[in-house]
Simulated assay, not measured.
Amino acid sequence: MTRRDALVGVIEALHAEIAALKANDVVGLERATQTKLVAIDAVAALDHTPPTSDLRALAEEAHRLNETCRIYVNLMSANVRRRLQQLAGDGRAAYRPGGHAFA
């Protein structure tokens, strides 16, 4: 396996994570995350020569997809927090102006 192959594996796993997040598929998310972690370990264990422009582009794509996953998780977390506040009868906003969370 090459670093390129391993990075492609990371990207494929990130696409699977995004699909699982969109579908609320916990089993699929767990599987995709495990696959991603194995692929990341493979990238780290492989050749440490300076990356080519192709490898840099793949790494940037993986980073972009990881940020997309992070955004989905943050949105889901905010939705859960808002719903829990509604269920608890707390009508306040989740955050005060200035970005500080309520205690």
Rank of each mutant, 00 (worst) to 15 (best):
M1A: 02
T2D: 13
T2S: 14
T2Q: 08
R3G: 06
R4E: 15
R4S: 10
D5S: 04
D5G: 03
A6H: 04
A6T: 00
A6M: 06
L7C: 05
G9F: 03
G9W: 01
G9R: 03
V10F: 02
E12F: 08
E12A: 13
L14R: 05
H15C: 10
E17K: 12
E17P: 08
I18M: 09
I18V: 00
I18W: 09
A20H: 04
L21A: 11
K22C: 10
N24Y: 03
N24Q: 07
V26S: 08
V26G: 08
V27C: 06
G28K: 06
G28R: 04
G28I: 07
L29G: 12
L29S: 06
L29H: 02
E30P: 02
R31D: 08
A32V: 02
Q34T: 12
T35N: 08
K36A: 06
L37W: 00
L37F: 07
A39T: 00
I40P: 07
D41M: 03
A42N: 10
V43N: 09
A44E: 10
A45V: 00
A45F: 02
L46F: 03
L46G: 04
L46A: 12
D47P: 07
D47Q: 04
P51E: 07
D54L: 11
D54V: 12
A57W: 00
A57I: 02
A57Q: 06
L58V: 01
L58D: 03
A59Y: 01
E60F: 05
E60V: 10
H63Y: 12
R64S: 12
L65A: 05
C69S: 06
R70A: 11
I71V: 14
I71Y: 15
I71A: 15
Y72E: 10
V73S: 13
N74D: 14
N74W: 13
L75N: 15
L75G: 15
M76N: 14
V80P: 06
R83N: 12
L84S: 09
L84F: 01
Q85E: 13
Q85N: 15
Q86T: 09
L87T: 10
A88S: 09
A88G: 09
A88F: 00
A88R: 05
D90F: 00
G91A: 10
R92G: 13
A93D: 13
A93P: 01
A93E: 10
A93C: 01
A93R: 01
A93T: 07
Y95D: 15
Y95M: 14
R96V: 12
P97R: 03
G99A: 14
H100C: 06
H100D: 10
H100Q: 15
H100R: 11
A103H: 12
